[in-house]
Amino acid sequence: MIHLTPWDLVIASILIIMLAITSFMMQLNIARQLLIAASRNVIQLLLVGYILKLIFANTNLFYLGGIAAVMLLVAGFEINARQKYPLKRWVGFKIGTSALFLSSFAMALVALLVIVAPTPWYSPQYAIPLLGMLLGNTMNGISLGMDKLNQSVYQQRLIIEQRLMLGQDYQEVIQDIRAESIRTGMIPIINSMAIAGLVSLPGMMTGQILSGTPPVEAVKYQILLFFLITAGTGFGIMLAVSMIARRLFDDRQRLSLALLKIKS
């Protein structure tokens, strides 16, 4: 494998700086965000590179548990960021994190204990990247599904109330919105599964091929990963969206938007 020198990365970073200068001159108002994101990217990844080096050197279930917990909490927190009608912070964090935990950790355990089964099963070289990809994708899915759900409920609140007034059960009233929200969350992963290989080469597979793994080996891993991620994402979204949909109604089946943080 060809090793990258710091200069190689400097050349790549010049491209980003050129993009920033151009967007500044075009008054796109995004140069600052671009540079901050690029700097975060460098710092976070370098940091994680060193941490991983440390962790790979001592295979220890407690270290792994610690890292996994941090990953889970950050993902759980980010679910509720960048929503148009976010949930109240603590509720959003609680629902998001528990859905993430149940789906992603279950999938990771299936992969580690049954399918890939490295020795020991918590070998960090497998566990961390796997969990990372599961959490990242599931987080995206839940975030999209939740955004759709909250936005639809808010916009259709009069219709929801009318249907409740007519004596419809809340399950019946929310059913279409819930289905639509779950579908919205699942579209990205289904899309990327469908075009994989024809339009895009998935990142993990590309990385493995670049580092010298035979393509067919890389492909097998990629397929496994796609299935795990899709299942994890799908179940995670169903869980999170259903939990929120349930809690948008109180014990007497009244629509209660107190769960949402309405920006005025």
Binding site: Q156, L158, I159, Q162, L164, M165, L166, G167, R252, R254
Partner: peptide, 18 residues
């Protein structure tokens, strides 16, 4: 609650259709 609302029916000033 749904049973109650079927019995004690509210006709709002502006009806909604979905």
């Amino acid at each position: 609650a749904p049973k109650w609302r079927k019995k004690v029916a509210l006709l709002p000033a502006e009806s909604q259709w979905w």
